[in-house]
């Protein structure tokens, strides 16, 4: 029973570690924060290994957990830390992704969006998810995702236009 749990957890861990690390690194401003999110997400997964869905759904489930962990951190909750991991991911923070002037304008507009909009657009652009997959991450209906995505894109386009960036190149893209 315990061995079974461990085997299953290890398999999911190996398959999803890089994706969860990517998710955290793309959303956290420091390697320490990203390391904390990854550690806590998998700690939750270990505790709730019986709830871990099979196959690719495990990844979606873990994105959902990571999203909650991140939200808790932003609310100032205490954290768990594995020192080794933040040293391990520190190199990913060596460069800022907002190199060009145009990109930094996009970054600003993106950062100013409501959290929910930003997360939806990021799940599409960064994790490459479709509305059905996003519905599983957010635990809502696919239709709700489509509507919220549509609104998020519209707000983002507006923000980009306000920043003088041609909007339809970036945001008005069908999924």
């Amino acid at each position: 029973m315990d061995d079974d749990r461990r085997t299953r957890f290890e398999a999911v861990y190996e398959q999803t570690y890089e994706q969860i690390l990517g998710y955290a690194v793309r959303r956290c401003d420091s390697p320490e924060d990203a390391a904390d999110v990854v550690s806590e997400t998998f700690a939750v997964a270990w505790r709730r290994a019986d709830a871990l869905p099979p196959g690719d759904e495990a990844r979606l489930w873990l994105y959902g957990v990571a999203r909650n962990v991140l939200a808790n951190h932003r609310r100032g909750a205490a954290r768990w830390r594995l020192v080794a991991l933040d040293v391990d991911v520190a190199d990913l923070y060596a460069h800022s992704p907002e190199g060009s002037v145009e990109l930094s304008a996009i970054a600003r507009a993106f950062k100013e969006l409501p959290d929910g909009d930003r997360e939806l657009l990021a799940l599409v652009a960064w994790e490459g998810l479709d509305p059905g997959q996003i519905a599983k991450v957010l635990d809502c209906s696919r239709n709700a995702v489509r509507i919220r995505l549509y609104r998020a894109r519209r707000r983002f386009s507006k923000a980009l236009a306000g920043a003088g960036v041609s909007a339809n190149r970036y945001a008005v893209e069908a999924v």
Partner: peptide, 9 residues
């Protein structure tokens, strides 16, 4: 989608 370029990794 150039939002992808904003991804740190």
């Amino acid at each position: 989608n150039e939002l992808t370029d904003l991804a740190r990794v």
